[in-house]
Design a protein around this nucleic acid. Structure first.
Lengths: 342, 342
DNA sequence: TAGGCCCTGGACAACGTTGTCAGCTGAATG
DNA sequence: CATTCAGCTGACAACGTTGTCCAGGGCCTA
């Protein structure tokens, strides 16, 4: 007896199937399926017997098999850069809420800003046959997605545009936001303004830099090379870049920070300075109101919601040409951006 | 021709299968399978032909079918309270990293602190046959998970204990942490200390309250009912509770905040006060160093990592009795907790 | 050169579910 | 009383993959 028991336990996850339920309830397989899916055409009495059998066996429908049969998985994939980044929390959550409203689950992963890892993740999600994908691109070539999209995987790119492929996108107005932020500093009297951003291969970083240059040019102001840092968001490098800008014979009197992570580090560095340096950051930050940090705010939740709604509209059959939505940003003045030149 | 095209497009996701690849490469079905899975026993020449066919057709293995056949999905479910909460970002990320190291994907969802929604989510994940589950419980009765666990779904509860069921858990030392934090305030001369926490049905909230009472009792100090608020983390209610404690004839001189969301609101309220009120918060917060907020820090990433590693050890066959791991907390003094009574 | 062995490739069943279709029962109608 | 019809129910195939098993061919050895 131990033998038979061990033998049957060998197989992992020896879960009851509809067949088992049918046998126990003394009905046909298809009748169980009908009950499980609340399809019409089952006598209350039969239904009760089936329900009891389900209860007794602890049966739970195997969605893998169901998916195989039905074609749709009722799940969407979300590939972002770093789940731990506070910017992506609200975005994920917004996507999740929309997915939930459509009865879909969310599978997500972080690319860690690595194009290869992005592709690996995306393809793994495609292999699972997610119905749709929301991708915050790490790489700049997404041709590998062409067969997938052609095969019916609805795809929306978020925050940064897709590379070498025509697809739906939902972006924030990085250029306009940065331009407004820098113009704000100029309006408060600054002439020497530093820009600390992310690596130029990241589209938003480039756009924000472009906004910086545009604002400076609009005001007829020159830009020194030493005022611009495009190293990365690594705290040590941001710190070094900031300190360097503040050190020379003609130090900057204001800094524009290219994203939330940069802002955080810059705030730390500025707090150590004697002079009061003006600061505007891209992306809002928790508690920024208490710290009096002026920011260009993009609504991460709105971005996520918009992208997800777009995705489900596609899944519901919308087949217009790929659209590019650009959401506006808002300048929130809290003090740090209104400081005069030191 | 438009007709035939439309006709073939009617079926959604008309993707090529191994059969199609086999036909095109002029080999058998199983040979394609071998190539796709890098199994031995295929001539280089045959392999090349198959690879070409795969390329040409844009074939991608259907993991749903694979799962059905193999039994394991190589995915784990993570049910937390709110993806947007900064506490859960690093936790999710840590879980994801461990999952990735084990070749598994992460499916996650937010319970929004609603027990029904938690159950709904968990069962949906079980229906997808995730190999394992990491759950931050919203409810206090998890007997519904018994058949699943028995069927082989490895389950680890995190941050709060499971209800009415014997399972693995990874917790932070809420009691000890709160006790230490309150003792810290007492050591700095405070006698009237407020406690603002989450609803008592949430286990960590109760534990932290218990820690508060313990610290007060240790010091032989009384506790007024009006010093304790267990409303919720809703900013308006926290604000009201804080203001009330600061208003009476015998206002508190220090506040212990029960979690990160409470802390954030309390900080805002205290910033508006004329008197300097001491504060210690449970959970660290970004930029808390700049704001000088003293906190009891729990390492969310460590919690997530520990839980995930535990989970995979189970999946690899560990079958010891359910374990309960409790991770220590750290007090980080930054100023707000060291203020003397006003 | 014959015998046997290894290596490669393919036919077939099975995983658990759902869609199709046909059979059966009992009631209503002419 | 015969006939039709509706409402239940179940047998069977199919979804796309992998595991098992067997066949055929080339190569080595005696």
């Amino acid at each position: 007896m131990a033998e038979t028991a061990r033998h049957s336990e060998t197989r992992y996850g020896n879960r009851p199937t509809m067949k088992d339920v049918a046998a126990r309830a003394g009905v046909g397989l298809k009748t169980v399926s009908r009950v499980v899916n609340s399809e019409p055409g089952v006598t209350p009495d039969t239904e009760r017997r089936v329900q009891e059998a389900i209860e007794a066996l602890g049966f739970r429908r195997n969605d893998s098999a169901r998916v195989l049969r039905k074609g749709r998985t009722a799940s969407i994939g979300l590939v972002l850069e770093d789940l731990a980044d506070p910017f992506y929390g609200p975005l994920s959550r917004a996507v999740e809420e929309v997915a939930r409203a459509h009865g879909a689950l969310l599978i997500n992963g972080s690319s860690a800003e690595d194009p290869e890892r992005e592709q690996e993740l995306v393809l793994a999600l495609c292999a699972r046959r997610v119905d749709g994908l929301i991708v915050i691109p790490a790489g700049d070539d997404h041709r590998y997605l062409e067969p997938e999209i052609k095969a019916g995987v609805a795809t929306v790119f978020v925050d940064r545009p897709a590379g070498r492929i025509d697809a739906d996108m939902v972006l924030s107005d990085s250029f306009g936001g940065a331009r407004e932020g820098v113009a704000h500093l100029i309006a408060h009297g600054h002439r020497r303004i530093g820009f600390i951003g992310d690596q130029p291969r990241i589209h938003t970083a480039t756009e924000r830099l472009r906004g910086y240059h545009a604002a400076m040019a609009d005001a007829g102001m020159r830009v020194e090379d030493s005022w611009v840092s495009l190293a990365s968001t690594d705290p040590d490098r941001v710190r070094a870049a900031t300190e360097q800008m503040l050190a020379g014979p003609e130090p900057v009197t204001a800094v524009f920070a290219g994203n939330n992570r940069v802002t955080v580090t810059v705030v730390r560095v500025l707090a150590e300075q004697e002079r009061r340096i003006a600061l505007v950051g891209f992306d809002d930050i928790e508690l920024a109101d208490l710290l009096g940090i002026t920011v260009i705010s993009q609504d991460a939740a709105a971005v996520g919601r918009t992208a997800a709604e777009h995705l489900f509209r596609r899944l519901d059959g919308a087949d217009h040409a790929p659209a590019r939505v650009e959401l506006p940003t808002t300048l929130i003045a809290r003090g740090s951006g209104e400081l005069p030149p030191a």
